[in-house]
Design a protein around this nucleic acid. Structure first.
Lengths: 169, 169
DNA sequence: AACCATCGTTCCGTAAACGGAACGGCTTAC
DNA sequence: GTAAGCCGTTCCGTTTACGGAACGATGGTT
């Protein structure tokens, strides 16, 4: 299970077991046993290996439900960070919008605003009765205390960052 | 270091070393050695312990330098995510700008653009010879193939997200 | 075909992580 | 006062993860 992830990462890098063991300064027997789940590695060993793979230890320990995600008909969003300051709370999401269907979201509390920066694709989003369009690199922003919509324009998936701002009530 | 985090979590729960060792089914010598950093635990051992503490393994592994950060005279930025699509690579940063001094950054490659959404404070940033100003909730964007500057306006720290877009060359 | 390099696994002696027991220190009970 | 209980550390014999070497398998070269 963790062995499989190590093996996956190693093969993704196109590097042999022998070579990785040499780079990491561990025995081939150690790495082989680890990848096959026969051994129960120490942290030191695992760290030496993940370091050479260029990933943090956590990448191979990957707790499944680590970061909350929001799914919808067309939108998939992953919460990257929550930030609170004196007069508002912010949630920063990584957002993907599938082409084809759009998605309508209900109104938030009064004063909540959304800020979207489009990475790729073309996004049409905003208040349901007056959405705007933004291409890759574009920026949209609206007050989301009314129902609002998201849709990918064309047949390309849209990647974007979404910032939700909740004013302190 | 990881021992300190385990000890911290255990004391936070108000549970004794002996009791935690008993619950986790590991020897007291093992837990004692782990907390004091004289042993190099196996994953199995560490997992048994963190499970009883009610935290994921990752909580005690917290890589200090897991996510690269960029320090400067006034700017502190943490890389949240890197995203590559067919014609550009994006880096999304969480950025903080200290009040007082500003900071000048050298030019990037041609075509690189920066997109900033301000969370709190007032930011003055952009090409060194023509910066713009944005309050909380505001958005700035410029082509950063010339030297550019960042500065907090007033005496409040600026919190923002910074998106760097590197076109495929 | 014979050779050579490298692959991943297996064998083996050593080093160290393991659990249990013994220890000294401290508090509470009788 | 001393016995009992729990604390965290240290001692010790057992178990096992460790690295190095040997192994058979595979692919490329002469």
């Amino acid at each position: 299970m963790i062995g499989a992830r190590v093996r996956g990462l190693r093969e993704e890098k196109g590097i042999s077991l022998s070579a990785l063991a040499r780079l990491a300064g561990v025995g081939k027997a150690t790495l082989s046993g680890l990848e096959n789940g026969v051994r129960n590695p120490t942290l030191e060993t695992l760290y030496a290996i993940t370091a050479q793979l260029g990933v943090p230890l956590t990448a191979v320990l990957a707790e499944p439900a680590a970061t909350p995600t929001v799914h919808g008909a067309a939108v998939h969003a992953t919460l990257l960070e929550v930030f609170t300051d004196t007069d508002a709370t912010y949630e920063l999401y990584r957002m993907r919008v599938r082409p084809g269907t759009g998605q309508l979201s209900p109104a938030h509390q009064p004063g909540v605003t959304e800020h979207v920066t489009v990475f790729s694709g073309v996004l049409r989003a905003g208040p349901a009765d007056a959405p705007s369009t933004a291409p890759a690199g574009g920026y949209l922003r609206w007050v989301s205390d009314v129902p609002h919509s998201y849709a990918a324009v064309g047949d390309e998936e849209v990647d974007a960052s979404l910032l939700l701002r909740y004013p302190r009530r």
